[in-house]
Amino acid sequence: MHEYSLASAIVEQVKKIALGHNASKVKTITVSADPYEMVIPDLLKEAYGIITDELELFKDSKLELLILPAEIICIDCDHKGEPSIEGDDEFAYNFKCAKCGSRDTHLNIRHLTIETVDLEIPE
């Protein structure tokens, strides 16, 4: 439940970017998140809505969220990539190596990232 902190961190960063480009409006913000980061998309959007509600710069703007595939790094065979498609019936999340099946892996969480911002800039 830290979607509110995240949404406000996004808004703060985008505000700076928009000001830096002399933008009059923020139209769309695209962010990417790791599935194992536990960000709840609806809560993030809701928090974003609440935070930007009274901000003229963000009026009618949209927050779009892309969920990336999870990424693990295998300690046994060095393979790096999505976990195996078979899944893991023992643990709540699948960390199994797609190459050798080992669960002895590191998790490379790609934290919530602001990918692009669509701005409206007066000419």
Partner: peptide, 18 residues
């Protein structure tokens, strides 16, 4: 008149924290 521009940011939301 306004123009629309897509800015590539590629920055983590946690940037300030990290």
């Amino acid at each position: 008149m306004t123009q629309e521009k897509k800015i590539t940011v590629k920055k983590q939301a946690y940037l300030v924290n990290d």
